[in-house]
Design a protein around this nucleic acid. Sequence first.
RNA 1: GGGCGUGUAGCAUAGCCUGGAUAAUGCACCGGCCUCCUAAGCCGGGGACCGCGGGUUCGAAUCCUGCCGCGCCCGCCA
Length: 578
Amino acid sequence: MRDLIKPVSEVLEPVLIEMGLADFDSKSIIGPATDKSHGDLAIPCHQFARILKKSPVEIADEAAEKMNEHLKGIASASSVAGFLNITAESRWLADRLSELVEHPTNGVERNSTRTVVVDYSSPNIAKEMHVGHLRSTVIGDSLVRILEMKGNTVIRENHVGDWGTPFGMLIERLEDLESEGIQPSDALADLGIFYRDARSSFDSDENFRERARRRVVALQSGDEATMARWRQLVDLSFSYFDEVYELLGVLLTKDDVRGESFYDPLLASVVERLDERGLLSNNSGAEVMYPGDWLNREGNPLPLIIRKGDGGYNYATSDLACIIDRTERLGAHDLVYVVGAEQKQHFQMVFAAARIAGFLHEEHTSKHVPFGLVLGSDGGKLKSRSGGAIRLLDLLREAIQRASAAVLNRNPDMTPSEIESIAKSIGIGAVKYSDLKADRTKDYVFDWERMLSFEGETGPYLQYAHARIRSIIAKSGGGASVENPARYTLPSNEETRLAREILAFPDAVDTAASELAPHRICKQLHRISQAFGSFYEHCPVLIEDDSLRVERISLCALTGDILKTGLELLGIDAPSRM
RNA sequence: GGGCGUGUAGCAUAGCCUGGAUAAUGCACCGGCCUCCUAAGCCGGGGACCGCGGGUUCGAAUCCUGCCGCGCCCGCCA
């Protein structure tokens, strides 16, 4: 009800002055009513009692009376227990609804024109993607869509772990397997096993370890045969990542990949630039920076290691190179990192260092968007039934398969290809919604039963509301576009409730964008779906009364469009049948 | 030890930044609703000392403070 505050505050302002409360800002004392049965907005008058030496009840009564005559056509004012309550008139709601129908982006203003880099997903080459990557991918993708809708220029960046010391052992493992006659594509068919075996050889075999070390040196120096192997690892891993991304339906493509290897050649210049500014100091052989007041376990200042004693580089250096690349080459204003909460301090230090070094200026913002761990239903780390790590691909396929059974059960007449497509939308939507619906900073319990039960606050519930709307519209014989009726009349409580929830949608998008919190949109879409469910049961649409029929079809179409738009912002499909 | 985060019905969560009325939603539980646009739905009901103690305030789930539980970080790893 953000739009209601402005006209109400214009009426409230002279009333405040008249009552001797000119010091209060009319806009900031108006808040949403905590109990919607009292109204849309509320002004608690208890705060004025001491100044006016009158009871809050008297003050609220007086203010309500003074306001009412000027609020005609907008709202009505009433008072209860010292609260001045404002309730929008149906007429006012109806006019806002008509505006929304005409609005090109469902009332969401494209009023932000920053260039934003969103860093998300970030899997590691030759390593299985785990549920942490799922969270980063799903949350990051939604943020990209939300920020784009607000008008920003958004650049997706997939900061892939494709460089560094692990590649010595990975390449040597690949060599070993090939000498045993195993094709590289087969060797990497299961990345979890491949990585685990490489690791165990590295840990247990001195000879292998030595070969791995030499291989790292060869990789760093650009040795041709080694680079070919490295390329092979990268390409094969990507085909796996792409399969996951395709199934997930995220925006990420190969063009968005900007891996560690890209920044490697830039690292020396990072050190140079820091050195020029005299920011580096030597700490037992390593070049370090002290960007803040962090302490280590012994209570000594915590260094950010820029160059190791052996001349190698650390993640911090790479992250600084990355910041320079994004601000100076890509012209980014805002940097967003969708990375697990455990790296919070690391990012604080890197951001602080980048400010000190002048890589980030006043016009830049940098935000770590943390998310919690993914836990199994036992409260511990998520594992497969056999106790191993869960392959993301298997997980997504299971989601689709579970959805498929439910779709077939309800629609025995559907063609197999229809079922396949709808099951994918539902299964993936269920996984995404359950990941996005809660505040992302909290740990997250992964529970098949809950997310795919198709009941309650789930992706399928929202999709179902949308599908029912499409079904009505198909039966109405009209087109898919929203017709603006001559005037909405909103004759029932169900209709005004639905109108209110629809009108709150742009607000939810704005909040989600400013807080980088997709769950704000989830919650509002759920409220809209609930309001629609109630409307659906109580307000028949395809009826004889022509003007009401037109109005209700329009309301359905508008609701459907908003649900579709909202689901798109979450990266979730909105099928027309289910 | 230091830092950060988190604690809300049996379970899972929203609300906390920006203090307001009877704390919201879902699952589970109890009771209703399919000759009618998809019952993956709708309507109604029971269930909460908002971790505990202090403080600020006319008013605290929300702000401040102390304690307790849980998690994460404090590596020449990423």
